[in-house]
Computed example of a mutant assay.
Amino acid sequence: MRYFLRIVVLTFFCILGPGVLLAAEKASGQWDIDPEHSSIGFRVRHIVGYVPGVFSRFSGQVEYDAAMPEKSQFYFLIDSSSVHTGVPARDEHLRSPDFLDVERSPRMIFSSKNVVREDGDILVVTGDLTIRDVTAEVRVPLQVLGIAGHPVKDKMPGVRVLGLHAAFSINRLDFHVGSEEWTRMGLMGEAIDLTIDMELLQR
């Protein structure tokens, strides 16, 4: 099922382009990202402070059943060129081969391989993260915030909403993002702190 899901997601992404909410056929327990109520943010150390940013275009699908969370599957695509820090010149530099190299690597991909339930509402999701030309395994502590019916029932009849939150770090050098020399200079840290807040819809 995981490989079928990958094929479906990639097919829709290639046809519709990045940033479009995926419209694959829904199955029981399948949820699609609501991009208007979701965000993917990051921050990186700069000298003695932090520079924040976001990726504004992304899509993906989740298979989640509260009764069997260990069987969940997560698949996300991020449009690398949608990086935004509020400074156009810096954003262009981040899109360049020095960092994300968006011409050669237009998207980042996360595909889960294993889910373990920890105490309470925390799932530890292990999966493959691809950035640029590198695919590496990462562990993401994911908090399930809950499931609720959409309160605007006249416009969203029968729609249920799933809330997810994750905060974790990766090493940019593991993915060939930026130079190690900048760390030695004290200009830029190696850790990229990621914060993901998502609402997903099931109809």
Results as ranks from 00 to 15, higher is better:
Val144Gln: 02
Ala136His: 13
Ile131Thr: 09
Glu137Thr: 12
Ala148Ile: 12
Thr130Tyr: 10
Val152Glu: 13
Lys153Leu: 10
His150Gly: 07
Glu137Val: 08
Asp133Ala: 15
Ala148Val: 12
Gly146Asn: 02
Pro151Tyr: 05
Gly158Tyr: 02
Glu137Phe: 03
Val152Cys: 10
Val140Arg: 00
Ala136Trp: 02
Pro151Ala: 03
Asp133Cys: 08
Val144Trp: 00
Lys155Gln: 11
Pro141Glu: 04
Gly149Phe: 06
Val152Trp: 11
Pro157Leu: 01
Gln143Met: 11
Val159Trp: 07
His150Phe: 09
Thr135Asp: 04
Leu129Lys: 02
Asp154Val: 11
Val159Ala: 09
Pro151Val: 08
Val138Lys: 04
Val159Thr: 15
Gly158Lys: 02
Lys155Leu: 14
Val134Ser: 12
Val159His: 04
Lys155Ile: 11
Met156Gln: 13
Pro141Gln: 04
Arg139Asn: 13
Pro157His: 07
Thr130Asp: 10
Leu129Pro: 04
Val144Phe: 00
Leu142Cys: 13
Val140Lys: 00
Ala136Phe: 04
Gly146Thr: 03
Leu145Gly: 13
Val144Glu: 01
Asp154Gln: 12
Ile147Ser: 06
Val140Leu: 01
Gln143Pro: 00
Asp154Pro: 00
Lys155Tyr: 11
Val138Pro: 08
Leu145Asn: 13
Gly146Trp: 01
Asp128Leu: 13
Lys155Cys: 06
Pro151Phe: 07
Val134Trp: 02
Gly158Gln: 03
Leu142Phe: 02
Glu137Arg: 12
Arg132Phe: 04
Gly146Cys: 03
Pro157Met: 02
Asp128His: 09
Leu142Ser: 08
Lys153Cys: 06
Ala136Gly: 10
Ala148Arg: 12
Asp133Gly: 08
Ala136Thr: 07
Thr135Cys: 10
Lys155His: 05
Leu129Met: 09
Gly158Ile: 07
Thr135His: 05
His150Asp: 15
Arg132Lys: 15
Gly146Lys: 01
Gly158His: 06
Val138Ile: 14
Arg132Glu: 03
Glu137His: 05
Ala148Tyr: 06
Pro157Phe: 07
Asp133Phe: 07
Gly158Ala: 07
Met156Lys: 14
Pro151Gln: 01
Val144Cys: 01
Pro141Trp: 01
Gly149Asn: 12
Val152Ile: 14
Val144Thr: 08
Thr135Leu: 06
Asp133Ser: 14
Val134Met: 09
Arg139Glu: 15
Lys155Phe: 11
Thr135Ala: 13
Ala136Val: 02
Thr135Pro: 07
Met156Tyr: 15
Gly146Met: 00
Glu137Cys: 11
His150Lys: 01
Ile131Cys: 10
Ile147Lys: 04
